[in-house]
Amino acid sequence: MRTTLLFAGLALLAGCKTITVEERHIIRPDALSGKAPKQRLDMPGVEELELARPDGAVLKGVLLQKPGAKLTVLYFGGNLFHLDDAGDKVAAALAPCDVNLAMVDYRGYGRSSGTPTVANMTDDALATFDYLNQRYPDAVAVHGQSLGSFVAAQVARQRNVAGLVLESTTTNARDMVNGSIPWYFKPFIQVSLAPSLQAIDNTDVVSHVQAPTLVLTGDADKDTPPALALKVFDALPSRHKRFLLTRGAGHNDVLSNPATAGALCPFLRDPAML
């Protein structure tokens, strides 16, 4: 969202009152952000995953299998997530939960080729879920953090997932953009969203999700404030749902907070028990 803030500043300097936010301002693959993996994930039991997509893009990721695991978690990271940079931290956080863990770089990020859009990120996520669900029938849960929470919610809407975890989530793209603009800019700026971004609405998507759901958020999260995560939670129709506010956690450290495991692991062991 730093790009959005920059545009806001430029808009003020130019005397403009409207900024237009496109997909490329929110979805920041390596070619735009200059980011790239710093290392190669090397952990015991890692199996390489590779999915060829119809348009020629190749998705690459890893599957960490745990002996005796009854559930497989498909994890979708936030923007700029690279499994080679942060995958070990996700694995460490989920290790006590005794689950298999699958992580795949979004197209255009890290190991995966191609150019990401809102539409093909959802299609890629569905294809990845279908692959894992064939391998572990009816035993795949999806977990999404920040940007990944929108992806995970779309999968849960369109597939029968074993469970859904939404971490550091928010309502829609407009709220996400508005939340990145300092209050002192807001009187001078109107935000115009690209049509594909206008269509993003997590509260609408989750209103169609019946799967057991755990919503995780930090009380110190300034990027996706807890009040917006609570709106997503309230939109869930499932009787099996829980909202966890982690004290002292910000936007990117909810999963690593020791207090989170106390709710996450029991949920992953038996989502229907919420």
Score class of each variant (00 low, 15 high):
L166I: 05
Q65V: 03
G68R: 00
L101M: 13
K60A: 07
K186R: 15
Q134L: 04
V155T: 08
L71V: 07
V165D: 03
D105F: 12
A93K: 05
N100D: 13
V165M: 05
R174D: 10
V161S: 14
V104P: 07
C97A: 13
A102V: 13
N79I: 03
D105N: 12
K70V: 07
A69I: 02
D85H: 12
D175E: 09
L80C: 05
T171K: 09
V62M: 08
V58I: 15
S149P: 00
A91T: 05
V155Y: 09
R157P: 04
K89G: 15
A92I: 02
T115E: 13
D98S: 13
P137E: 06
D130Y: 09
P137I: 05
D105W: 03
M103S: 09
D88Q: 13
F185Q: 09
A69G: 04
T170I: 02
A95N: 09
T122V: 15
G144Q: 00
D85E: 12
D123P: 06
S113A: 07
A69E: 00
L126D: 07
V104T: 11
G68M: 03
S180L: 12
T72H: 01
N79Q: 03
A119H: 12
Y106G: 10
F150I: 10
D138K: 15
V151E: 02
E167M: 08
T128W: 08
A141Q: 05
V177K: 11
L71Q: 14
V142R: 11
R111E: 12
N120Y: 09
G179A: 04
S180F: 11
N172R: 10
G110I: 14
L164Y: 04
V73Q: 02
D175Y: 02
N133P: 01
F150A: 11
A102Q: 13
P96Y: 12
T117L: 06
V62S: 08
S112V: 14
G61E: 00
L126P: 06
Y131V: 09
T72S: 08
A173G: 06
L147H: 00
S180I: 08
S146D: 06
L166P: 01
G144C: 00
L132W: 03
S112R: 09
T128G: 01
R174E: 15
D124P: 11
L59W: 02
K186Y: 04
G110K: 07
D85F: 03
V58A: 12
T169N: 05
A153W: 00
T169V: 14
E167A: 08
R111L: 15
R157F: 02
G148Y: 00
T72N: 11
V104D: 07
T169D: 03
T117D: 08
G179Y: 11
L147A: 01
L94R: 05
S180V: 04
A156C: 10
D98I: 14
V177N: 04
A92N: 14
R135W: 04
M103D: 06
P116E: 06
V165N: 00
L71D: 01
W183Q: 11
N79W: 11
T171V: 13
N79K: 00
R159C: 01
F81R: 14
M176I: 15
A125K: 02
A95G: 01
T117H: 13
A173D: 05
Q134S: 08
K89M: 05
Q65E: 15
C97D: 05
A156P: 12
Y136A: 11
G87N: 13
T115R: 15
S168E: 06
K60V: 10
V165E: 04
V142K: 13
G87Q: 10
Q158V: 01
D105Q: 12
P182A: 14
D84F: 02
G179V: 01
